[in-house]
Each structure stands twice: as structure tokens, then as C-alpha cells.
């Protein structure tokens, strides 16, 4: 008797409502579209995430590595009920947010990843993700953790998240924080922005292709800082430097 192992390994996704795309004007006057990425777009996204695995600044390395695996898991059906939203400016990939639905009442926020720093790009993308959970999926709460200080300020402090420390988050088993519908409603008028429908030309540009970010986050440019980070026990910078030099990675 033959066994289709793939049927066992592949989780059965729950049909989730699609996220209706929206757009917003950034502080620099550019318009950013946030829309749901289809599964077959993941291979177009991964090459823009991979280089940041080697950026040893503001935890880009660990977030990029984890996000890469989450996107790959989504693409290859190895995670259940995951979704991916992308933020694009003139087609360029500006941010990626993802998460999954744990149950009809509970969402699990995975990552918020800005490829365009500043201008609240990440904050807008995170708020949109929360909108998806609370307003579209109609969930009562979203479980959240932060890997960086920036994330902690943006989520835990700005949204005044509640502690759910008895619930281990799926990211490293860390104690969870929760954005409830009540907290989201409080933040709705100050932190959550965006307009619908997205003008056709903006949406068409976004869907035409996910373009690489023109100014992605970089590691420390200052020589002295770079020297010091080479002394870091993770040696990430050293590995990256050797990689750029075409040398052998030990």
C-alpha cells in the first residue's frame, strides 16, 4: 500500500477572508500600497529578504532569518493558516508583515520587516496587520512578541499591549503580549491609517511585480563601528565581510 506522505505533512488551511488592499501617503509624500501576497509571489520576495540575514543591526539578521523560514514554510505548505502582506512603494518592496490564525478568536503575529527604514513604514505595516486580524478575520486578540527594542517601543508601548506571559509565543517560546480588540479600537484613530479603494494605477503597479528595495537596511558603515562589530561573538560581520571578498567562509 502506497502512502502519500505529502498529505500527512501538509496542514489543511482554513479558508480565511482575503485582505482588501489599501494605500496611504507617507511623510515624504509617496504612496504606499499594502496588499496580500499570493503564495506564488513568495519566490519573488525571498531574494530581498536573504541579504538582510547578514545585516548585523537592529536585529535585522535574526528577523530576516526567521522571516525567510516562515515565508519558505508558507510557500511549501509547512505552516498552517499563515498569511503574508506586503507594502510597496512604486512597486518596490517596503515592508513585509506576516502571521497566522491560531483559532477563530486568536491570531498570532509573526514578523514586521521594514526594507525601507523610517517614515513609519514598519509601523503602518504592523497596524495594517492588526487591522487584518481584528477587522477582517474578526479575531478577539492577537498574540505578539518583539525581537528588537524598536519593535518593543512600536508595539508594546504605543499600543499599550496587555501581558499574556502564560502563553508561549510561537517565536522562540517567548512570553506573549496581546493586542485585544478593545486596545485596537483605542489606537484606531491615531495609529491605523489607510484608504480604500486603492487607485487602479497604484494597485496595478504593485501587482506588476515586487521590485527590490532601492535603499535596503545596511550594516554599520562607520569603519570603527564595523571593526567593533567584528569582535561580536556571533562573528556575523566577519562572515559577511569574507563573503563579500569572495573568500572562504569558515
Amino acid at each position: 500500500m502506497s502512502v502519500d506522505l505529502e498529505k500527512i505533512l501538509r496542514p489543511v488551511d482554513t479558508p480565511l477572508p482575503k485582505f482588501p488592499a489599501k494605500y496611504m501617503t507617507l511623510a515624504n509624500g509617496q504612496e504606499m500600497v499594502v496588499r496580500q501576497a499570493e503564495r506564488d509571489e513568495i519566490p519573488d520576495i525571498l531574494p530581498h529578504v536573504e541579504p538582510l540575514i547578514h545585516v548585523e543591526r537592529d536585529f535585522y539578521n535574526i528577523v530576516a532569518a526567521r522571516l525567510y523560514s516562515e515565508l519558505l514554510a508558507y510557500y511549501t505548505y509547512r505552516v498552517q493558516d499563515e498569511y503574508v502582506l506586503v507594502a510597496q512603494i512604486d512597486g518596490e518592496l517596503a515592508a513585509i508583515v506576516n502571521g497566522r490564525s491560531v483559532s477563530p478568536d486568536v491570531g498570532m503575529s509573526y514578523h514586521t520587516f521594514s526594507l525601507r527604514r523610517g517614515l513609519r513604514v514598519g509601523a503602518h505595516a504592523f497596524a495594517t496587520k492588526m487591522e487584518y486580524h481584528i477587522d477582517i478575520l474578526k479575531q478577539k486578540e492577537v498574540l505578539i512578541v518583539a525581537e528588537s527594542g524598536i519593535g518593543f517601543r512600536r508595539w508594546m508601548i504605543e499600543y499599550n499591549l496587555e501581558k499574556r506571559f502564560h502563553i508561549p509565543h510561537e517565536l522562540g517560546g517567548c512570553p506573549s503580549w496581546s493586542l485585544t480588540k478593545e486596545l485596537f479600537d483605542k489606537a484606531r484613530n491615531t495609529l491605523v491609517v489607510g484608504r480604500r479603494p486603492v487607485p487602479e494605477h497604484l494597485l496595478a503597479k504593485a501587482k506588476a511585480g515586487i521590485l527590490p528595495p532601492s535603499d535596503p537596511p545596511k550594516g554599520p558603515e562607520d569603519l570603527l563601528a564595523a571593526t567593533r562589530s567584528m569582535l561580536d561573538s556571533t562573528a556575523t560581520s566577519l562572515i559577511e565581510m569574507r563573503r563579500k571578498q569572495g573568500g572562504k567562509i569558515q
Binding site: 496611504m24 501617503t25 509624500g29 509617496q30 517614515l119 491609517v193 489607510g194 484608504r195
Partner: peptide, 14 residues
Amino acid sequence: TIEGILDSPEASTN
């Protein structure tokens, strides 16, 4: 830009 920080609907959040 002035539009992004003052005039757009998102300006109060930006």
C-alpha cells in the same frame, strides 16, 4: 513633504 506631514489624511499619524 508638506503633503506627507501636514495635508494628507495620514498626516496626523505620520
